[in-house]
Computed example of a mutant assay.
Amino acid sequence: MSDNDKNFKRPPKKYHPKGITFLYEDRDILVVEKVSGLLTVSSEKVRENTAFYLLNDYVRKGNPKSPHRIFIVHRLDRDTSGVLVFAKSEKAKHFLQDQWHDFKKTYYAVVDGEPPEREGVVTSYLTENAIHKVYSTTDQKKGKLAKTAYKVIKQGQGNSLLEIDLLTGRKNQIRVHLSDIGCPVVGDKKYRGEKPEAETPKPAQKSKGPARKRPRLALHSASLTLIHPFSKKEMTFDTIIPPYFESLVRKTRE
C-alpha cells in the first residue's frame, strides 16, 4: 500500500460495474481488467456502456454531481480484453502519458498458423487510410515507426499462442503486424483478408436455428508495469491467459 493510499476509502463493491474486474485502486490511479466487447470510451453509437462511463459512475458512487472523476490514459480496442489504467487527476494523467512509452506492456494472442520464426520482432511504419484501416508502409514520412516482439509459447489445432511485448504503441499495431507475417489474430475480421468469410460463414436465410456466434478477438492485454505517479514506485499488474485462448491451442487426443 502506498503512502497516498493509507486513508483512502473505496466506494462499496455494489458500485462495481459488470464486465470490469478491479486490480488496484488508490487516490491517484484505477487499474482494471475489462472484458472483450466493452468499449474503452464512447463512440457515435455507444455512449454509456463503456469502461470510462461505468468507472466514472463508480467513483462518483452513482451521484452525477460528484466532483470525482477519472481521466483516460490509454485505450484498448473494444474486442481486446485486459489491463486498463485510468488516472484520477490531470496531474496523474499527464505523468502516466509522458512515461507511457517506457512502461512494459505484455499481450497474449492466438493466431492462425505458425509464425516464420519461433520468436522475432516485426518492424514497419504504420499509417491509416480514409476508412480508418491501419496498414504497414516503407515510407518513413508517411507512417510512424512500430515494433512488435513476439514469442511462440504453445501450438495446437493449427493455431499458435504468442506472448507479445509491445515495443511501441500504435493503433491496431499488434493486429496489423501479425497479419503482415501471415498469422492474423483469431477472430480478427478487419485484418484477416478473405479468410473470415470462408471460415465463419453466415447462416442460411431459411435456417431457423440460432446464428453462429462470431469468435471473439483472441488478443489480451495481460501485463503492465508502470511507475506510480505519486510514489514513483514500480508496479506490475498481471492477469491470466484467458481460458478461451487455451482452448484454441489445446491438442486433441489421437
Results as ranks from 00 to 15, higher is better:
Thr106Trp: 04
His228Glu: 10
Asp188Gln: 07
Glu194His: 11
Thr200Phe: 14
Gly37His: 04
Ile29Gly: 02
Arg253Tyr: 11
Ser89Lys: 05
Asp165Thr: 13
Lys13His: 12
Val186Ser: 04
Arg175Ile: 05
Trp100Gly: 06
Arg250Pro: 04
Leu226Cys: 06
Gly62Val: 05
Asp165Tyr: 09
His94Pro: 02
Val41Ala: 15
Cys183Trp: 04
Gln99Trp: 10
Arg216Pro: 08
Asp180Gln: 15
Gly143Leu: 02
Tyr107Leu: 08
Thr21Ala: 13
Val152Glu: 03
Leu84Glu: 01
Thr168Gln: 04
Pro196Gly: 11
His94Thr: 15
Gly156Ile: 03
Leu76Cys: 06
Asp188Glu: 10
Ala130His: 12
Ala130Ser: 15
Pro11Val: 11
Leu96Lys: 04
Asp188Trp: 03
Thr236Leu: 04
Ile240His: 08
Ala92Cys: 11
Lys65Asn: 13
Gly113Glu: 06
Thr225Cys: 11
Thr127Ile: 07
Asp188His: 10
Ile227Met: 10
Lys65Phe: 11
Tyr191Asn: 00
Glu199Gln: 12
Tyr150Phe: 15
Arg170Pro: 08
Val122Phe: 00
Arg175Ala: 06
Leu248Arg: 00
Asn56Ile: 07
Trp100Glu: 06
Arg192Trp: 14
His177Cys: 07
Glu128Leu: 10
Val41Asn: 12
Val46Ile: 15
Glu197Val: 15
Thr50Leu: 05
Thr127Lys: 02
Ser66Met: 06
Thr106Asn: 09
Ser136Ala: 15
Lys142Arg: 14
Gly143Glu: 06
Gly182Ile: 10
Leu226His: 01
Glu90His: 12
Lys151Tyr: 04
Thr168Ser: 03
Asp238Trp: 02
Leu166Ala: 02
Leu23Asn: 02
Thr236Val: 11
Thr225Ser: 12
Glu194Pro: 13
Leu96Gly: 01
Lys144Ala: 13
Glu246Tyr: 07
Val73Phe: 02
Ile70Ala: 02
Leu126Tyr: 03
Gln173Glu: 14
Thr21Asn: 13
Val73His: 01
Phe245Met: 14
Leu23Cys: 05
Lys195Asp: 13
Ala146His: 04
Leu39Met: 14
Lys189Glu: 14
Leu126Cys: 03
Thr80His: 01
Asp112Tyr: 11
Thr137Asp: 09
Thr127Val: 05
Pro243Ala: 06
Ala51Arg: 00
Phe86Ser: 04
His68Pro: 02
Ile181Gln: 02
